[in-house]
């Protein structure tokens, strides 16, 4: 097709090519920009409540733990061998598995990569890089109530 329009001169062809190019860029831009924005999930406001009831205090035996939902995140409530109550975020600081209480070890353990935390939430062995976030625990009537620390 080059020969057919060669006599109309390069100037006209340049203008046409430039127009076609800008059209292409404009169309692609107006398609790709909304798609790129659409693909990024919108931020959801965290619906985590200030406090949750974590069941009856009498139902949590000494040297055992229980996982409860705090909004969308799991929290582990533990009654230590000495009978105290404590609560931590149950999300392992290594690769976000959910941890569990090991009565035989008397501390918190993550099954995914053998991470260990003591009863203050400190990472004591294995790969976890940071301690678990601590929650405040109170007993109101018969209920265990856990509150996020500010």
């Amino acid at each position: 097709m080059g020969d057919r329009v060669a006599d109309t001169g390069p100037a006209r062809r340049d203008v046409l090519n430039w127009l076609l190019g800008s059209w292409l860029v404009g169309v692609l831009g107006s398609i790709l920009y909304p798609i790129a924005r659409y693909l990024v999930p919108p931020e959801l406001p965290e619906a985590a409540p200030p406090s949750v009831v974590a069941g009856k205090a009498t139902a949590l035996a000494t040297n055992s733990g229980r996982i409860v939902a705090f909004g969308t995140a799991p929290v582990i409530v533990i009654r230590t061998p000495s009978g105290e109550l404590c609560a931590f975020s149950a999300t392992c600081t290594h690769l976000t598995c959910t941890v569990q209480y090991r009565p035989d070890l008397e501390h918190i353990w993550c099954a995914c990569h053998n991470g260990h935390y003591d009863l203050n939430g400190r990472n004591i062995a294995g790969p976890p890089p940071r301690p678990l976030d601590r929650f405040d625990v109170t007993v109101q009537g018969e209920d265990i109530v856990i509150v996020r620390r500010t």
């Binding site: 909304p34 659409y38 999930p41 919108p42």
Partner: peptide, 9 residues
């Protein structure tokens, strides 16, 4: 209502 350009898509 929430996803950017979701109404458009």
């Amino acid at each position: 209502t929430r996803v950017p350009f979701g109404w458009l898509v």
